[in-house]
Design a protein around this nucleic acid. Structure first.
Lengths: 237, 237
DNA sequence: GAGTGGTCTAGACCACATG
DNA sequence: ATGTGGTCTAGACCACTCA
């Protein structure tokens, strides 16, 4: 039945109340004892739910005083765990879909070869995807992985669209660390068409190198993401 | 006597064992039950200690398998500590210089007022700087701070070019947390001239909100930075 | 099946903030 | 003095992994 743990149910309920505005910034949440009684669980369970809210930045706990809704909307999650794409975008995983543009075995471009630490001639798998949130295209992700590390990807298939999860479940390769470089670029006509923006629009460009274990490079990926900032910076002084 | 909580003692002990190498990368920690017995506490207490290690990135928990020391040294704490400008750019602090473009007291634009949580009419200090690395312009930083929090800045002067350091030394205000949103934009002619790039070039745009203590907003800053990526992403597929 | 971490209980006492 | 969150117990059952 895949029943969610109680603390997650409580977390989502409170999270929803904050999101919908029935709990506004600065409001005090019911005390942990009250919540425990209300949800019919023990206080420790409530604490787990609230602790998660706190980690997400939605609430602030004050010893001896109470738990309060944060004054600000949390913007970005911290990047300790290079989160899934959904986490990084700050959206629900269920809102994220993928369109597979290419999945093939071949020789990557020179610069990628170097970053992947491949010997000359060694093949790699390319997974080129368009990621969508709520059906809207938001990001192009172009990943290259050493064929030796990801042979199963050569045969196609991605479990639930998550590359890292597929790696872990099918190859036993666990991505433990990633480095990113953020840049900006202009959309080419082809990119623009896929992302539904004007050609020449600015895009956030990220180069990511993902490692497993020590220094073994598992993936080199380039992504181009549509800026989502609500403020128009380009018109500023 | 200010005795530290047991879970913190346990956390530090394990943390020390990892740091000293008696627990190396990939090693499995004793099971939670064993740790509980060893430290003479309940398993829930051990879980709190280990959970903290996990949040710090020192260990990885695997359901049904065990808890393992992470393969990599956890790098920078991001988000929590937001490095100096030099750290963020990955350069030596001695290579970084600033050119003060404006430093004045006034009423910020509407959007900034909201983010600063100012009442209507409340004044703020603006510090607008061009940051250079090795003499090359790389970033425009436009900061707004509540006048009440930074009165000394109204009289000019920045210690060593570091805004946060000035805040700490002169106002006793310590920035404890910052949130950032990354975006992209196109350089206006004026921005282009200051940054020595072509008008219309893509720039990395970052909106930062810095907090002191709980939810008190200390600074809202917008920065525009020249992409420094060695790879030319804009010419890619 | 044995061992691991994940969830949960129904209490308890303590430290802290505020009226 | 009261109520809050912080810490802690001594169990329990479940879900997962692996031999």
């Amino acid at each position: 039945m895949a029943v969610a743990p109680r603390y997650q149910v409580i977390n989502r309920d409170l999270s929803g109340q904050i999101g919908s505005g029935s709990l506004g910034p600065g409001d005090r949440l019911p005390s942990e004892s009250e919540l425990a009684q209300h949800y019919g669980v023990s206080r420790m369970t409530v604490r787990q739910a609230v602790g998660q809210l706190e980690a997400e930045g939605l609430v602030v706990r004050r010893h001896g005083t109470g738990t309060f809704v944060s004054e600000h909307r949390p913007r970005r999650r911290r990047a300790n765990r290079f989160g899934s794409f959904a986490e990084e975008m700050g959206v629900e995983a269920s809102d994220v879909t993928s369109r597979l543009l290419e999945q093939e075995v071949g020789l990557p471009p020179e610069d990628i070869v170097a970053l992947l630490q491949l010997s000359p001639g060694q093949a790699a798998v390319r997974v080129y995807r368009l990621r969508l949130v709520s059906g809207e295209p938001v990001s192009l992700q172009d990943s290259w992985l050493p064929l030796l590390l990801a042979p199963s990807l050569a045969r196609g298939g991605l479990e639930g669209g998550s590359l890292y999860r597929t790696l872990r479940d099918r190859e036993g390769v666990e991505v433990t660390r990633a480095e990113q470089e953020v840049s900006a670029s202009l959309a080419t006509p082809e990119q623009a068409q896929l992302l539904a923006v004007e050609p020449g629009s600015p895009l956030i460009a990220i180069l990511r190198v993902a490692y497993a274990g020590g220094d073994e490079v598992v993936e080199v990926a380039r992504s181009l993401t549509v800026p989502t900032l609500p403020l128009s910076l380009s018109t500023e002084r």
